[in-house]
Design a protein around this nucleic acid. Sequence first.
DNA 1: AAGCCTGTCAACCGCCGAGAT
DNA 2: AATCTCGGCGGTTGACAGGCT
Length: 239
Amino acid sequence: MRKPCCEKLDTNKGAWSKQEDQKLVDYIRKHGEGCWRTLPQAAGLLSCGKSCRLRRINHLRPDLKRGNFAEDEEDLIIRLHALLGNRWSLIAGRLPGRTDNEVKNYWNSHLRRKLINMGIDPSNHRLSRSLPRPQAPNITSSCATLSDELKCGAHDDDQQAAVKYRGENDQVSDAGSCFEDDSSGLVNLNLDLTISIPFTSLANVEEEQKHINVRAKYYVNKARLQSSLSGASTYSLDN
DNA sequence: AAGCCTGTCAACCGCCGAGAT
DNA sequence: AATCTCGGCGGTTGACAGGCT
């Protein structure tokens, strides 16, 4: 049985006041980010440690960039999401000044809908329109039909966005292709966004997903390790 | 003007993994 | 090996603002 992270009866909940923010900022400036569990008491705050940590990370960090996401940031989020899935902290790590919460919210409120409008399933970045599929799909044939698929249903702007989203390369590879060989010894996370070919059966999809998940986990852990060894503040996903 | 609906965002909650014992 | 503590993460919730009828 786990203990709660704090004694809930005595804690403040809800929005933070300016005074509370100031106390937290002052304390961290003096003592640094130490033990979050004991910080509230030491700083004279009634919020629980977790809440203090969250407030610090999401709002009080000096390097935070507020305001709208730029187009290149949007593009990067979409590509990283295609690669990493809902690993918001990893995605945010590639966007200086952005927090995982901010990225997650932006994804759920803007980008998800944008992809849906483009006819792309945001959960797996595959075309979601129910269209006739080739009986025996192969990469070449699915590439040929992709533009046509995008034309069905999507609005003109969305079509253009979808084409842009795909990039100039008309090749469509399966979702796992970005985890291919890492023979260089460096983390090889290809950020090229790819749209997978259709699968013929549910069993194939599930098998493929398992395969991708295992490999993704491996590369993410590797990236973490390398990042911690090099002392980088962001994970190096570029080649 | 009032009520309803929808979108956004800050914050909370529960779970998990890592490290310590 | 088992258990505990802590920090971190992702999913979810709720308050609020703005738009619409």
